[in-house]
Nucleic acid binder design. Structure first.
Lengths: 262, 262
DNA sequence: GCGCTTCTGTGTCCGTATTCACAGAACGGA
DNA sequence: TCCGTTCTGTGAATACGGACACAGAAGCGC
C-alpha cells in the first residue's frame, strides 16, 4: 500500500524526476542578508507590525533554499512550521491513492503557506513542491503560537486570509462542478493573469506556466487543456510560447469564461 | 439578462415552486421564548461567552421563521447579518448564469452562516434556502462588529471555523476533480452520516435527504446519483426509503469511497 | 380511498473529457 | 552543432456522466 502511494506521488510529480541536473542561472537565491525582501516585509499577514517587531520576527525565521522539484513538505515530512515564500514559486497539491493530483495553488513570492496550522488544522494529504528554485523562511510552531496567534492585529489578518481562501475555493468548486473545461480554462487564465507578478515594468504581463501546470489547477488532463488553449490561441484571444501565455483579448476571454458555448 | 438569471434561479430551486401549500406539521417553530435552544447556546462560536454575555447577545438577536422553500438571502437580498440556525435546515447554494446550482452546505440546527461577512468577504452569488421550516436568529452587522470581531475569544473561534471550512472545501475540490461519482457518493454519505443529528437516542442514525439534494452536494445529476445509490443499496451497503438513507455496512462504504472500481 | 405531488428507478442517446499513442517543436547542455 | 528532455499538438477509441423521457412508488391532503 505504501508502494502504491509512493508510485502515485512520483507520477503526480510529473513522472521521472530530474533531481539531478545542476542549476544554470546565476542563482540569485544565496544573496546576502541585505536582500531587500527580508522574508517578512511585503507579507500582508505582518503588515501591522512595527519595524522593530518585524525585525524580531525575522531573526526567528531561518531561510532555506529548495531546489526546483524538491518537496517543501509532504506527508512524510508534515507541516511543523509556517512558511513564507521569499523567492521562487511553490505548488501546493494533493494526491489521491491512485496517484492523481490536483494543484490547490501556485504561490508567488511573498505568499504565506502552511497557514492551516495557524487555525488548528492539519494539512491533510497536502504536498508543497518548489517548481522553481525557491527561498523559504520558516517560523516554528512555537514562535507562531507565541507571537502571532496571540496578537489580535495578526489574528484578524489570519481571519481575513482564511476568508479569502474560502471564497476562492467556493468559486473553484462551483466552476469545476458546473462549467465546461473551456470556460474554466478562460477563468483561470484571467485570475492567473491578475495574480501574475507584474512583469518588469508596465505591462508585458504573462502567465509563466506550462499546460500541464494549468491542467493541474483545472483538474483536467494536459491534453484537454492544451486543446482549449490552442483554441483560444487560434481565435487570437491568447498568445502562447513555450511555458508562457499572454492574454491578447481580455474581453473575449471574459466572454469565453461565462458562455458555455465555445 | 435578468430574465435569464431569474429563470436560472427558479430551476435551481427545483422547478415549479410550491410556495403555496400551507404547512401540515404542528409547527414547533412558534414555541415561546422559553425554548430550550435560545439561539446562541449550543453554538460553538459563542462557547466562550459567560451566561450574562450570552443573554445580552440573545436580546440583540431577533428570530425569524422561514417557511420551507423560502430564501433567507440571495443576491436580491444580500447578506447583512450573521445568521444562527435555531431549528430546521438550510441549504446554501450557488447558481451559475445557466441556472445550474451547486449546494455548498446543508446546515442543521446550531449552525452559523453568513460568516463570510465576519472576515470582510461578500457572499458572492450565494443563496440560502430553507429546506424545512426554520427559525433563524440574525445578528446585525453592527452588533457583530461591536461584540464579536473585537472579542479575541471569538476571533480565535472564527479563525478555527474558517480553517475547518477551508479543509472541507479542499477535500471536496479534490474529490470532485479526481474521483468518480460512485466514490464521491460513498464519501458524502459517510460525512453526512457523521454530521447527521444523532437520531433520537442511540443509533437509528439516518440521512434525511432526497437524491436530488445529495446530487446538489455532489455536483452531479439526480439520475446519476440515484444510480450510484441504487447500486449501493443492491449491494446491501445502504438501505433507502423515501428521503432517507441508512448506512448498513460502513466498512464497505468506506471501501467504496476510495476504490474507483465499483 | 382518491388524487396530486414529490421522489425514485431505468433506459437510451449523446457529448465532453480521459486514455493512449505518437510526432514535431523548443530549449538546454555538452 | 548535436542530443536529450520537456513541452505542445493532435488523433482515435473509450468511458463516464449528462440530458431527456417516462413509469412506478410513496406520501400527504382531502
Amino acid at each position: 500500500m505504501n508502494d502504491k502511494r509512493d508510485k502515485g506521488l512520483e507520477s503526480a510529480l510529473g513522472g521521472s524526476r530530474p533531481w539531478s541536473p545542476a542549476q544554470r542561472e546565476p542563482d540569485p537565491l544565496t544573496t546576502g542578508p541585505e536582500d531587500p525582501f527580508n522574508c517578512l516585509n511585503e507579507v500582508d499577514l505582518f503588515a501591522d507590525l512595527s519595524p522593530e517587531e518585524m525585525h524580531a520576527m525575522e531573526i526567528m525565521a531561518p531561510a532555506r533554499v529548495f531546489r526546483r522539484g524538491e518537496l517543501v513538505f509532504s506527508q512524510a515530512q508534515p507541516v511543523t512550521a509556517l512558511f513564507v515564500l521569499k523567492s521562487g514559486r511553490i505548488r501546493i497539491f494533493r494526491v489521491t491513492e491512485e496517484g492523481k493530483a490536483l494543484t490547490l495553488a501556485i504561490l508567488e513570492r511573498g505568499a504565506v503557506f502552511g497557514e492551516m496550522m495557524l487555525v488548528g488544522q492539519r494539512m491533510y494529504d497536502a504536498y508543497a513542491e518548489a517548481i522553481e528554485d525557491s527561498a523559504i523562511c520558516q517560523l516554528s510552531v512555537e514562535d507562531v503560537e507565541r507571537y502571532l496567534i496571540s496578537d489580535p492585529r495578526i489574528a484578524i489578518r489570519i481571519s481575513r486570509l482564511m476568508g479569502e481562501q474560502v471564497a476562492r475555493l467556493e468559486e473553484r468548486l462551483t466552476d469545476l462542478a458546473l462549467r465546461p473545461l473551456s470556460a474554466r480554462t478562460a477563468s483561470i487564465l484571467i485570475s492567473l493573469d491578475a495574480a501574475a507578478p507584474t512583469g518588469r515594468f508596465g505591462q508585458g504581463r504573462s502567465i509563466r506556466l506550462t499546460h500541464e501546470q494549468i491542467a493541474g489547477l483545472l483538474g483536467a488532463t494536459r491534453e484537454a487543456t492544451s486543446k482549449a488553449l490552442a483554441d483560444f490561441a487560434a481565435r487570437g484571444i491568447i498568445r502562447q510560447s513555450r511555458g508562457r501565455i499572454t492574454i491578447q483579448n481580455p474581453t473575449a476571454l471574459r466572454a469565453a469564461a461565462v458562455s458555455s458555448g465555445g
